[in-house]
Simulated assay, not measured.
Amino acid sequence: MTTDLPTTSLPSLDDLPGHYIRRLQQIAVALFMDELKDWNLTPVQYAALNAAARMPDIEQGALARAIGFDTSTTGGVVDRLERQGLIVRKQSPQDRRVRLLATTAAGRALLDEVQPGVAQVQERILAPLPAEERPLFLRMLRTLVEANNELSRAPREMPDGR
């Protein structure tokens, strides 16, 4: 026996910002995969490679926090990037148990090569907005993410203030 709630008590998905945020994330991933299909690179792999290039010799846990991903997901991503020759793990001179990450020449070359496509993804995401509204949208989006960062399963934390 089933009992259905009257539909008038349910909010419309059109009134739920979370619904639109989830949809926009799906759209952003689809656009990324479309623009970068020739490189077989995912958005998470790009984030990890970008962060490792910007923060040489970063510890893997710090990389996970810098890109806002859990450590197990980041570990798998780093494993794949290492197998592709885009990242290397080095032993820390201060602590032999710690592995530091650095991009290889091939990793840096890939970042340079995909940068126009990454920029095109951003343009495509924002294309429906008038140019003058895009900075406001980005500012508001950043405010929401930063204000709710600690509620995430993997809060973002930039090492050394970077």
Rank of each mutant, 00 (worst) to 15 (best):
T3C: 06
T3Q: 13
T3N: 10
D4L: 13
L5F: 09
L10A: 11
L10W: 03
P11R: 13
S12Y: 06
L16G: 01
Y20P: 03
L24N: 13
L24V: 13
I27W: 03
A28Q: 15
V29P: 04
V29Q: 04
F32Y: 08
M33I: 11
M33E: 15
K37F: 02
D38N: 13
D38S: 14
D38E: 15
W39K: 07
W39I: 03
T42E: 07
P43Y: 03
A47Q: 14
A47S: 14
A48L: 06
L49M: 11
A51G: 07
A53F: 12
A53P: 00
R54Y: 00
D57T: 02
E59N: 06
E59G: 08
Q60R: 12
A64Q: 05
A64T: 04
R65I: 01
I67R: 05
F69K: 11
F69H: 14
F69S: 10
D70Y: 05
D70K: 10
T73Q: 14
T73L: 15
T73E: 12
T74Y: 04
V77D: 10
L81K: 00
E82P: 10
R83M: 13
G85Y: 04
G85S: 10
G85P: 14
L86T: 11
L86I: 11
I87T: 11
V88H: 04
K90W: 00
S92Y: 06
P93G: 05
Q94M: 05
R96M: 01
V98T: 13
V98E: 03
R99I: 02
L100F: 07
L101P: 07
A102Q: 14
T104A: 05
A105Y: 01
A106Y: 01
A106T: 13
G107V: 11
G107F: 04
R108F: 01
A109T: 11
L111S: 05
D112W: 00
D112N: 03
Q115V: 02
G117Q: 09
V118N: 03
V118Q: 01
V118T: 09
V118S: 02
R124I: 10
I125D: 00
L126S: 08
E132S: 12
R134C: 10
R134S: 06
R134N: 07
L138C: 06
M140L: 15
L141T: 13
L141N: 13
L141D: 10
T143A: 15
L144C: 06
V145C: 11
E146Q: 14
L151A: 02
L151K: 01
M158K: 12
P159G: 09
D160C: 04
